[in-house]
């Protein structure tokens, strides 16, 4: 047991830490789910595409571009890259079955990873920081000990997650494009016979996922202060676990799954000091397994996973 277990300030600190990690997992889970919904594929290169997006932000800021503008430009480029990969690589392979697609996303993972190492090197570099990141960039709430405060970076992460969720809701639930996307997700063939352009909806999913991934990678890099070519390696695992927890085909499920996973990963080692940080991951995955035993479709999923 942690000696601070009854300390409100300590527990609140764990809560904000858990929410911050959870928000980052949620971004990755959202990206995975947005691809999965219309294609039933899991893009194993989702994390590497995201890291590439973060490097593009970094490169643009080195040319003097404002970091927020750089983020928007990189998101647009990522959208194009994601949509292009779906159209040019994944769709032609899809006719041949599921394994060529899985292998293709694995190959993409390796290629993008290597390209980043070649261009930007293997040493960590200072991360682009769109959110205020100084030691003083915080609001003190409780004096402690230990003190409880909210960093602007954490607050910014929550706000961006809420804005992304609101934007996705508007797009998917309130536009004709979103109706087409959801129709393809619900029943691909039925959507096709109504004249809905299935391929374009799949490109849309890949594109939005890639753009969201870029946001995720920039925030992850800012959280750890540095950017390197493996920045998204472990986050992808957490994102997959979060997507599984939430139900693979559910957008709100991805967000909830990410936040719940963030809580577990933070609170379990935080409360039980015998459990080291690395064990936290194992426990988090164990919790995911237990949830899936009870509810194979996850929190919000509409159907059990079939093709993974």
């Amino acid at each position: 047991m942690s000696p601070h277990i009854g300390n409100v300030s300590y527990l609140l600190s764990l809560l904000t830490t858990g929410l911050t990690s959870g928000a980052l997992y949620a971004f990755v889970a959202l990206a995975i789910v947005l691809v999965y919904k219309t294609t039933t594929h899991i893009n194993l290169a989702q994390g590497e595409m995201a890291a590439l997006g973060a490097f593009i932000v970094l490169a643009l800021t080195r040319y003097g571009v404002n970091v927020w503008l750089a983020l928007v430009i990189s998101m647009a480029l990522s959208f194009g890259l994601g949509a292009g990969i779906e159209r040019g690589l994944i769709r032609p392979l899809e006719r041949r079955g599921i394994f060529p697609v899985v292998l293709a996303t694995l190959a993409l993972f390796l290629v993008i990873n290597a390209v980043m190492a070649i261009i930007w090197g293997t040493q960590p570099v200072p991360a682009p920081a769109p959110l205020p990141n100084g030691l003083d960039a915080k609001i003190d709430i409780l004096a402690g000990p230990p003190p409880f405060f909210l960093t602007y970076r954490a607050l910014g992460t929550y706000v961006i997650l809420l804005a992304v969720l609101a934007g996705l809701w508007l797009l998917l639930e309130r536009t004709k494009l979103g109706l087409g996307y959801r129709a393809v997700a619900a029943n691909r063939e039925a959507a096709q016979v109504l004249g809905i352009p299935v391929g374009r909806m799949q490109m849309l999913g890949w594109g939005i996922a890639a753009a969201l991934g870029t946001v995720a990678a920039v925030l992850v890099a800012e959280t750890v202060n540095t950017l390197d070519f493996n920045v998204m390696g472990s986050i992808l695992i957490f994102g997959l676990a979060a997507a599984t927890l939430g139900g693979f085909d559910s957008v709100p499920g991805a967000a909830v799954g990410g936040l719940v996973l963030g809580m577990i990963v933070t609170f379990v080692p935080g409360l039980f000091t015998v459990i080291e940080g690395d064990l936290g991951l194992i426990i988090a995955l164990a919790v995911v397994l237990v949830v899936l035993l009870v509810r194979p479709q996850g929190f919000f999923g509409t159907k059990p996973l079939e093709r993974v």
């Binding site: 004709k176 087409g180 959801r182 129709a183 619900a186 029943n187 063939e189 959507a191």
Partner: peptide
């Protein structure tokens, strides 16, 4: 489909998670 053929597939092909009205609007894509 744009030329004027509509197809009610075997097994109906309803979008189960969409509302009835969303299904109708999808038909008018």
């Amino acid at each position: 489909v744009r030329q004027g053929i509509a197809h009610v597939p075997q097994g109906r092909g309803i979008f189960g998670v969409l509302t009835v009205e969303e299904n109708m609007r999808a038909g008018a894509w």
